[in-house]
Design a protein around this nucleic acid. Structure first.
Lengths: 250, 250
DNA sequence: CGTGTTATTGACCAACATCAAACTTAGTGG
DNA sequence: CCACTAAGTTTGATGTTGGTCAATAACACG
């Protein structure tokens, strides 16, 4: 349990701002949300499938994912969450979780009581619409992932994932110098894209060979954005960003 | 454009009832929604990606899907929608559609003006929660599809899809005699599960050989529910049904 | 330094895709 | 009612992508 800092709140504003206009009234309400901050180690479960939640999570720092387990212990990561994201807002309305939530890197996460969120939504229709919209964009990203995993080959899949994450991070102002910091092991990339860890390695080499990216550990410099975009069959429409890509320099 | 019948409304009630309690007050409001009914031929697009909608759709009869197109003209079906479903409720809050909507069989669809839906949600918090919940269950199904396509083999995928559809149809009372009527061609099954049409054929044969189902055209008799369930690694939790499976005879 | 994790490599193989043709079915019009 | 057609299904042969296994190399960290 840790203290809340100003920048924690601003992450949430920044994230919401990417998809809708957050007015002062809403900003004010958000700044009064009670946050219980917890730090998780890399790999730690934040919640597991079947959990009944009384709080929703807000990612403050690090990288968080939602995942599902299938037969034979295989894992599928169904979403990645950046600072400012509310990765299990749906627990407000769904009795128990149909997925796990885990920290992919050391992460600070704030728990917000459902009552607080619900109260805020009841009091303020604009706020309700705002949070609703985040859930709907979430769903839109799921749809794209279904298409990505179902109908794109391995190079396209990985390229697409990089594009998506790059755009989302840029929209949050988390990218400097075109370097995408993605603290995912290749095994985790594999779980996110539905391919094997070994093959992820080969695909990454290919993306480097093609000149799209240069990797140093988890830091990937995007050398050829339009090439990567083309390789990943990527179009940002499904992210429903308020600003055009040009506004974030892409 | 066709007349609205009583049973059209009851489909919507029935569908909502599967995930939440619909009280008389809500039932009353729903029965006053203005519906503009349109019939679509098999294969017809109801709306296409990029459309800006002023209405949301309600499936009255038939089978409807949401789909995305990727490079090379490949198609991925991202969801199937049964009578009573509201397949593009998200258009209430997202400016334009990130996917297409098409009739997989001859279908009657009702268009409901956004204003009417929004008005209803604004006036009645319980109604808002009800519709919100349908969107969240929708998203939960997306997550399961990601896991299905990403981490299950072709037999599991198809079996899982059959299980899901069977359960959803049973919950709506649309199944008699354990026969699942699924008006999908094998090419469409392929687009829904991310495999090739030819391979779907072989998988179907395998499911028949294993004694799980018996097919006559689009009518599939489920001969061994627990076998199919096991083969598809299926668990209904993610459907967030109000009633346990035992309540619908499974 | 050891030690554990992650990345990389190569050999091999299985699952699934692709292609092309034949067959079945359902619908249509004479 | 039947021939005709188009759509969908089935089959076999063949090719490719990507999975699996096992070993090695590169890091990261105490």
């Amino acid at each position: 349990m840790m203290r809340t800092e100003h920048s924690d709140r601003s992450r949430l504003f920044a994230s919401l701002q990417t998809i809708a206009e957050v007015r002062d009234a809403q900003r004010e309400m958000l700044s009064q949300l009670p946050l219980r901050v917890v730090t998780f180690h890399q790999g730690a479960d934040i919640l597991v499938e079947g959990d009944e939640a009384t709080d929703s999570c807000l990612v403050l720092s690090g990288l968080v994912c939602r995942y599902k387990l299938v037969a034979d212990g295989k894992r599928q990561i169904v979403s990645l969450h950046l600072p400012g994201d509310l990765p299990d807002l749906q627990s407000l309305y769904l009795a128990y979780s149909d997925h796990g939530l885990a920290a992919l890197s050391p992460s600070r996460v704030a728990f917000i009581p459902h009552e607080a969120l619900r109260g805020m939504m009841d009091r303020d229709a604009r706020m309700a619409a705002l949070l609703l919209k985040t859930m709907l964009v979430d769903a839109s990203i799921f749809r794209e992932w279904i298409a990505n995993i179902g109908r794109r080959d391995s190079v396209q899949r990985i390229a697409h994932l990089f594009c998506e994450t790059f755009v989302r991070m840029r929209a949050l102002g988390l990218v400097s110098d075109n370097v995408l910091s993605l603290p995912l092991t290749q095994a985790e990339l594999a779980d996110a894209t539905g391919i094997s860890a070994v093959h992820v390695n080969r695909v990454m080499q290919q993306l480097r060979r093609l000149g799209f990216i240069t990797s140093r550990g988890n830091h990937h410099r995007i050398n050829d954005w339009s090439g990567l975009k083309r390789a990943g069959d990527f179009s940002a429409a499904y992210l429903h960003l308020r600003q055009p890509l040009s506004a974030i320099g892409l």
